[in-house]
C-alpha cells in the first residue's frame, strides 16, 4: 500500500512537472519564432527604449540560456527565492514561489491567493448543488424506469448537457439581474466580509455551472441505481420485508453512490482554475479569469502560476480518488 501511494505521488509530481515544461515552452516559442525579445511581452503596452531593453533583459535573465531560465523558475517553486524590485531590499518569496508579474507589479503567489477563493467558492457551491440535484433526479428516474417522470428527467438532463454556459449565463443574467432586478449588484465579496453579498454574487454562476453537471450526474445515478436495484441482495432485502424507503436509501443508493463520489472528486478538482467561461460570463475574478487575462496579456509568470495550480488541483483530486479506490477495492493491484 505504501509503495502504491509513493508510486502514485511520484507520478503526480511528474505530471505537474511536464505541465510546467510544456507551458514554459509554449510561451518561449512565440517570441523566439518571431525574433522578438520576450521583454516586450513581459513589460506590456509601452515598449522600452534600447537602453531600457538592455536593463530589463538583465533584470529578468532573458540573456540566459532557456534551461537556466526554466531552472530559475522551477527552483523558485521548490526552494523559494528573493525577488528584487531593482530598488529596495529583496522581497522574500518563500516556496512555492511562482515569481513576480512585472505587468501587475505583484508577486504571482499573491495574485493566485486573491483569485483562489473565488474559484473555490464557485466550484464548491456548484458541486453541492449538482450533487444534490443530480442524485435526486437520477434516483427518482431509476425508481420508475420508463415512466413519464423518468422520461422528463432524462430528456431534461440531455437538454441541460447540450446548453453551453455562454448561452445560459447571459440568459440568467438577463432575467434575474436586469429584467426582474432581483440581484441588482453582483460584485463578488469574500464570504468572511459579507456572506450575503457573497451568496448573491455566486448564486447565478452556481446555477449555470451546476445545471450542466447535474445532468451528467442524474444520468449516472440512474444507470447505477438501475443496476444496483437489480442485484440479488436488494431482492433479499425486499424479501426480508424492509420498506421501500429503507431499501432505496440504505442499500440501493449507498451502493450506487460509491462510484459517483469518486468521480465527484475528480470533477471538483478539474474545476479549480479552469472555470474560464463561467468566470468570464459572470465577471468573477477567479483563477479562470486570471488565466485568460494573463494569456491575453502574455504575462508569462502568471500563466505559469495558474496553469500549475490547475494541474496540481487536478492531480491531487486524481490521486485521492486513486488511493481511496485502492483502500476500498482490494482488487486494485497494490
Amino acid at each position: 500500500m505504501v509503495r502504491f501511494i509513493i508510486v502514485r505521488v511520484l507520478g503526480a509530481i511528474v505530471v505537474v512537472w511536464i505541465v510546467s515544461v510544456v507551458t514554459f515552452l509554449i510561451f518561449q516559442l512565440g517570441p523566439t519564432l518571431t525574433h522578438t525579445s520576450p521583454v516586450y511581452y513581459y513589460v506590456g503596452k509601452i515598449p522600452p527604449t534600447a537602453e531600457g531593453l538592455k536593463l530589463l533583459t538583465d533584470r529578468f535573465g532573458f540573456n540566459l540560456p532557456l534551461y537556466a531560465q526554466y531552472w530559475h523558475f522551477l527552483s523558485g517553486i521548490l526552494f523559494g527565492q528573493s525577488i528584487t524590485d531593482g530598488v529596495s531590499a529583496p522581497i522574500p518569496c518563500p516556496s512555492p514561489c511562482f515569481g513576480y508579474s512585472f505587468r501587475q507589479n505583484e508577486l504571482v503567489g499573491n495574485m493566485l491567493l486573491q483569485a483562489a477563493p473565488v474559484s473555490i467558492s464557485l466550484a464548491a457551491g456548484a458541486a453541492i448543488l449538482w450533487l444534490i440535484g443530480g442524485v435526486t433526479v437520477g434516483t427518482i428516474s431509476a425508481l420508475r424506469p420508463g415512466s413519464v417522470i423518468d422520461r422528463i428527467g432524462m430528456t431534461g438532463s440531455l437538454a441541460a448537457v447540450s446548453l453551453p454556459i455562454f448561452f445560459t449565463g447571459p440568459i440568467l443574467l438577463l432575467i434575474f439581474e436586469y429584467q426582474l432586478g432581483w440581484l441588482p449588484d453582483v460584485a463578488y465579496a469574500p464570504i468572511s466580509q459579507d456572506p450575503l453579498q457573497w451568496l448573491k454574487s455566486m448564486i447565478l454562476p452556481w446555477i449555470a455551472l451546476a445545471f450542466l453537471f447535474a445532468a451528467l450526474y442524474a444520468r449516472l445515478t440512474r444507470s447505477n441505481m438501475l443496476e444496483t436495484m437489480g442485484e440479488d441482495y436488494i431482492r433479499t432485502a425486499r424479501a426480508k420485508g424492509l420498506s421501500q424507503r429503507t431499501v432505496v436509501l440504505k442499500h440501493g443508493l449507498r451502493a450506487a453512490l460509491t462510484p459517483i463520489v469518486t468521480i465527484f472528486g475528480i470533477d471538483v478538482g478539474t474545476l479549480i482554475g479552469t472555470t474560464v467561461i463561467t468566470e468570464t460570463v459572470f465577471n468573477l475574478r477567479g483563477l479562470g479569469f486570471l488565466s485568460i487575462q494573463s494569456i491575453q496579456n502574455e504575462d508569462l509568470p502568471v500563466i505559469m502560476g495558474v496553469t500549475i495550480v490547475a494541474a496540481v488541483a487536478l492531480v491531487i483530486a486524481n490521486l485521492i480518488v486513486d488511493i481511496l479506490y485502492a483502500v476500498i477495492d482490494p482488487r486494485v493491484t497494490v
Binding site: 506590456g44 530589463l56 524590485d85 512585472f102
Partner: peptide
C-alpha cells in the same frame, strides 16, 4: 530607471 519604472511616457 527603465527596469523599474516602466509603462509611462518616459520616452
Amino acid at each position: 530607471a527603465q527596469d523599474v519604472i516602466n509603462g509611462g511616457p518616459s520616452s
